[in-house]
Design a protein around this nucleic acid. Structure first.
Lengths: 186, 186, 186, 186
DNA sequence: AATGAATGAGATTTCATTCAT
DNA sequence: GATGAATGAAATCTCATTCAT
């Protein structure tokens, strides 16, 4: 019961911060949106910034390298990468709000920036793992790293793109480009 | 003289908005940083948002497709792309503050978002142009587009990366990956 | 057991009120300092002011005139007064916190002011008694009263002085001055 | 004109702080009492504590030793001391509010405590000067110091007394006691 | 007897904006 | 063109007190 109300508050904060940004959202609006009295927000989150921190630390999935298993399509790097993107789901609506918060506040709130750095590191490691398991041959470590960074950059850029209303780059296209670069010969 | 003071104000705003964000920067601090009286800021920029708009419209370069000439290294796509990145200079300190502002405020301020969309479109067109002039053969339009999007995504992602303190992906590596994908045969 | 927790609360309140003042000390901090749940403070002391009143009524000694016996040194007014001061112990650390509270809150909280007035009256009566029993001769009532008031004023002033970090006046010196004023002839 | 409004604010603060104490007086009440908008209080005094500091630093007289000239009655220490007390005017209504503030806040606000220490030092020096110029003979330095401290203690104690509603000790009586102590012989 | 989640009135402070000069 | 005093709406945060359990 008590946790329900704390959850309502976080839900409301997530929605509003994504819509209008952290700074532009008064705590009073969070309380109203969560249908709890103003004082209760402070009770659970003594300072406004604690709302942001709770969202980022409690609700952001960190992707471990073991998740590669679920998406690998042996011998087909393009498909594997596309499925990786779908699995991570950065473009999906469910994570849209957190993603918005993550990118926007990373520059001004150190704790948030730290999480964004971890996310990228994990995604790169995961992508390298996916590539390894997909292609049969042993990849050059430098090339593998560059390929992974390229794909992760595209995923993160697209996440950012969606939020700013730009025309999203096609991740399938990027997957194809990366995949072609890895072809030992044609 | 009058223009000098207007410029001081914009300089100060650029610095402070990049540091702390638009919302978190009081106009009074802009005035203090610019060493002008508070009233003068509102004299030149009747509303606070006008400061942001002036920065974006007056100080952001838009890259036309004709700039390809300056960077193309015929026959060497990797080098051409690296030189393109250097030319655009998104990673350079000079544009760091504007870039910061651009990414952060794009989601909440429509005018700013519009500029970011234009920037991406122009960069994609420019990159396609660079690729065309670099490789001798006629590229498949779909592949060319995917390659351009991939490289632009990496450039923009890196710009965003720098601002959040993440480990920057290596643009030379991405250039190599994109370049290899375009090799007709090896 | 129950009394232990009530005592902890009063101990904590005494410490914190002395440090930061009554108004500036939240009851929540009292509870934290006493290591009891917040609700318990209000269980024992329904209103915050009751904490202050309990401290003053339960922990402040009132000095009766009969205490003169313990300090009188017949024929030596200076020594008697010095011993009176030591006996009353207003300067001692044990009473420092209560003294602090007494002086600071006397002006704004009538109940506390009443206690301070009683303390002064009792001290004057006690000092007059000490002087009477010390000197052999019959003192002029007006002079005796003035002398007592002078010494009590010095004791209370010093109590206040210690609390504000001023250089404490030397009570032995005051005892000497008062004593000399009472000498019938030299 | 502008200064007038700043002065109104300080006047109001002086009145209200004396009445109810610093902590118990909302800045909104200060604004209301001064008949200025709430924002203006903050304009002149960015933090509430600045009101207190301005009162103490701008409105508290510091008594220099040269002021002795105005009160000395040669050969009559009792009269000289009484006139000194009247001159310093700690008991007068005009200084009552500041005195109240001074004593109450000295313990919790270091800046205020510093002023109270200076006031005592200056008063002791001034009183010693008065005694020197009043009595013809050369006083023993130790005795002179004790006598001065005794009288200053009484003045400060009485100031404090008035504020807490206690029965004020008679300063004329203290003057007589101190004066008698200085009589070389009778 | 004990508790800690809950409440809401109100405190301090912030700050974009106005405007008389 | 320039200025800085002035304004007030609104933001964040505080905290004594209540009350269901």
């Amino acid at each position: 019961m008590a946790q329900d109300r704390r959850t309502s508050i976080l839900d409301a904060a997530e929605r509003l911060f994504a819509e209008s940004g952290f700074d532009a959202t008064p705590t009073a609006r969070v309380a109203a949106e969560a249908k709890v009295p103003k004082g209760l927000v402070f009770y659970y989150f003594p300072h406004k910034i604690d709302l942001l921190l709770a969202l980022v630390t409690e609700r952001l999935p960190t992707h471990g390298p073991d998740e590669a298993d679920r998406v690998v399509e042996p011998g087909d790097a393009t498909t594997s990468l596309i499925r990786l993107d779908e699995h991570v789901g950065l473009a999906e609506h469910a994570s849209a709000t957190l993603r918005t918060i993550l990118f926007r506040e990373a520059g001004t709130h150190p704790e948030v920036g730290k999480h964004l750095r971890h996310l990228r590191q994990n995604l790169v490691a995961l992508t390298e793992n996916v590539l390894d398991r997909t292609v049969g041959v042993v990849l050059d470590p430098g090339l593998r790293r560059d390929a992974a960074h390229t794909f992760v950059a595209a995923m993160l850029d697209r996440a950012n793109t969606v939020r700013t209303g730009e025309v999203a780059p096609d991740l399938a296209g990027v997957a194809r480009v990366v995949s072609m670069a890895l072809q030992p010969a044609r």
